[in-house]
Simulated assay, not measured.
Amino acid sequence: MAILIVEDEVSIRDVLKSYFLKEGWDVLTSSDGLDAMKKIRKFKIDLVVLDLMIPKLSGEEVCREIRTISNVPVFIISAKSREEDMINGLNLGADDYITKPFRIKEVLARINALLRRIEMVTKESKKILYFNHKSLVINFETKELLVSNKVVNLTFTEFKILDALVKKPGKVFSRQDLTYIVQGYRFIGDGRTMDAHIKNLRKKIEEDPKNPKYIVTKIGSGYKFNCHLDEAQ
């Protein structure tokens, strides 16, 4: 498996590269956004570790461009530590976000957990689920989504949220529950990061995101999937 580290600080880039090599990854590195996008288009990348404050093309722009061509998991590591920065990163399509200074063991643990969850989505779910007379089709083998017969690209985190919700239609999941299921840890804060993921997901699957019919908010409790499987599956 191949990982791309996009980081302009040599010391941080070298530390990350050393640890990922020890973990058995094939490692590519970039020190600027333009070079990162060239490598993403040229090579098969399984995970991108992305700094936001990089030259030539910002990390935000890199993340935005990645999401136009790929659903590869994106893990942001950034000195931008405000909650607004984290939410913005998630809104751009990142799967996880950790701030500098970071502990390398935490980075490795989060990434390994992310990869395990990717594998579990495929193994534990039915291969294809149909909802609303096939208006919504979820293919777990290819991790593709069809909305009104059009392919919609989801980030892995968005896909995992949808996976958790559709497995138990009607069940209300709190933000804490969803964060634990999807990220593997309990959030600290007001839950706005999960709200950002839900907002992004609604934009992609709902005909009217402001009046959703699939992912419904239960005020004061959380979110639920409000549609049952088509019959005869």
Rank of each mutant, 00 (worst) to 15 (best):
I104Q: 07
L165C: 07
S135F: 10
E119L: 06
K143H: 07
Q176E: 12
T179D: 04
K100W: 12
V152W: 09
N139Y: 13
N139C: 05
Q183P: 00
E144I: 04
V121M: 10
P169Y: 13
K168F: 15
D96I: 09
V172S: 09
A109W: 10
Y185K: 10
T179H: 15
N149H: 12
R103D: 11
D95I: 09
F187C: 01
Q176P: 00
I98L: 15
K150I: 14
I138C: 01
L114M: 14
F140D: 01
K105T: 14
A164W: 09
N149Y: 13
F131T: 02
L146E: 13
L114D: 00
N153Q: 07
G170N: 10
L114S: 02
V137C: 03
T99Y: 11
K126F: 14
F131G: 00
P101H: 12
I181W: 11
T155S: 12
I98S: 02
R117P: 02
V172L: 09
R117A: 03
T122Q: 12
K167V: 05
L165Q: 09
V107A: 01
I111D: 00
E119R: 14
L145H: 08
I181T: 06
Q183S: 03
K171Y: 15
T179Y: 12
R116N: 07
F187A: 02
T179Q: 05
E106G: 00
A109Q: 09
K134L: 03
R117C: 03
E119H: 09
K167Q: 13
E141Q: 13
Y180T: 05
K123W: 11
F131M: 04
I111V: 08
N149A: 06
L129Q: 14
D163F: 11
T142E: 13
V147T: 01
T157D: 01
L136T: 08
V137E: 01
S125A: 11
T142G: 00
V152D: 01
V166K: 10
K171D: 08
R117V: 06
R116W: 10
K167S: 07
R175N: 12
F173I: 07
Q183H: 14
L154F: 11
A164P: 00
L178G: 01
V147Y: 07
L146N: 08
V182M: 04
V152C: 03
A109R: 10
R110S: 02
P169A: 06
V151H: 15
K143R: 15
V151P: 12
I161S: 01
E106R: 13
F140H: 15
R103P: 00
D163G: 02
L165W: 14
E144N: 13
S174A: 04
G170D: 08
P101D: 04
E144T: 15
V151F: 14
T157H: 05
